[in-house]
Structure formats: structure tokens, C-alpha cells
Design a protein around this nucleic acid. Structure first.
Length: 202
DNA sequence: TACGGGATCCACT
DNA sequence: GTGGATCCCGTAT
């Protein structure tokens, strides 16, 4: 079952936690790439120095963050990689959840080709483990780029669906790669599924 | 297994 | 002109 607008239209930290265990789906002309979300980070807009919309910045890049809950915010990082975020809260409130890692479950061959140019069976053990265990890696594997920025996740191209509801423990810790963010770098806004081998960093 | 540096681009100042 | 919500590879243990 597809997650609806109500799901995204809530407190950002709540959504970040509840996204764990849900399934991210990219439908490419009928071929579906799917992965279970195992790691997320919340970015609390105006009050969060680590967020692109800190202090109410409203530039062209961050425009998606001000859109409807359930909008995709995709941006280029370090000139090479894309990061995929899900906009939360009410329209006009620039908060979002960064998807940091997924566990691949469908379309593995295409993911392997997108990442390494070879079929899944030919991947080394190391490459399998590193298929989608980081924000830049999962966007490359799922073929998510800036063409999908601003897309509505309540549509049929890129969306989230319910997982299998299996039990797991959530680990709460600090975010990664935001040393410049002063006091905000210590906020416990990163969440991951305890014991999952696709988490990017323990 | 752990660290250090290079790759490479565009939004922002 | 600057630098980043990252990844990969080489080097060293």
C-alpha cells in the first residue's frame, strides 16, 4: 500500500523514524527498483543550522522544501552525487528527511548495473554490501537525479509503500558530515535500524 | 580496517 | 571564487 499525503504531513522527527522499514520504489517504465529504508536523517529547516533552509533561506535550490509534504527534494552534492530527501510538515515549512541507506529487495540487477556496470551475480561480496549503503550510492543505484527534484511522491513514478511490519529497534544518534553546523551537529536526528547491514555508519 | 586526498559541478555569496 | 547532508582508491597497518 502506498503512503499518502497524511503520512508526510506530520512532525519531521516522527516521519523520519516511521520511514524506517518502509519501501522506496522507483518505477522506471514499468521496471521497479525497490529497497527498504534502513537509515534516515531529519533536517528541521529554519531552526537547524545543518539544514539548507536554515534561517528561512529560500533560494532556487531549496524551493522543493517549501512545497507540499510528500515532495521529493533532490540536490547535487560535491559535484558528483545526488541526495534524496522527502519533504514533511505543512506546505511552506521547509523541513525534510534525508534517506541515507536502503536494503535492496527488487531490481537488483539493474541497481548493480547503475552502480558498477555489471550484473548482480558478478558483484564481489564487497560490492553487494556497498550497493545502497549511503545517500549518494542509493541514488545512483536507483537512478535518482535532479530530474526527479520536486516530483510528487504520491504519484506513480517515485513513491513509498508499506513494509512487512517486522519488528526492529531504532537507534538514535547524531548526523553525518555536518561539522560546520555548530550546536546543531550534536542534535540526535539520525535514525537507523539496529543490526541492519546496509546502514552506512554505526 | 582506517585514514587521507582527489574527483567535479553548480548554487550561493 | 568558494565549498559542500559523498564516494572511491591508494597507502599503511
Amino acid at each position: 500500500m502506498k503512503l499518502n499525503r497524511e503520512f508526510y504531513s506530520r512532525n519531521t522527527l516522527t516521519v523520519a523514524k516511521e520511514l524506517l522499514g518502509k519501501v522506496l520504489v522507483h518505477n522506471i517504465n514499468g521496471e521497479k527498483l525497490k529497497g527498504i529504508i534502513v537509515e534516515t536523517e531529519a533536517y528541521l529547516g529554519i531552526r537547524d543550522k545543518a539544514a539548507h533552509a536554515y534561517g528561512g533561506r529560500k533560494t532556487k535550490r531549496v524551493e522543493a522544501m517549501y512545497g507540499l509534504p510528500g515532495t521529493a527534494y533532490v540536490y547535487l552534492i560535491y559535484g558528483l552525487y545526488y541526495c534524496f530527501n522527502i519533504v514533511t510538515e505543512k506546505e511552506g515549512v521547509p523541513e525534510a528527511v534525508l534517506i541515507r541507506a536502503i536494503e535492496p529487495i527488487e531490481g537488483l540487477d539493474l541497481m548493480a548495473k547503475n552502480r558498477f556496470g555489471i550484473s548482480y551475480d558478478n558483484l564481489t561480496k564487497y560490492q553487494k554490501k556497498n550497493l545502497t549503503n549511503g545517500p549518494g550510492k542509493l541514488t545512483r543505484a536507483l537512478n535518482i537525479d535532479k530530474a526527479l527534484n520536486m516530483i510528487d511522491l504520491c504519484g506513480d513514478r517515485l513513491y513509498l509503500e508499506e513494509g512487512d511490519n517486522s519488528e526492529f529497534n531504532i537507534v538514535e544518534t547524531t548526523r553525518i558530515g555536518i561539522d560546520y553546523a555548530e550546536e546543531a551537529k550534536d542534535f540526535p536526528y539520525r535514525f537507523y535500524i539496529q543490526g541492519n547491514s546496509y546502514v552506512s555508519k554505526l
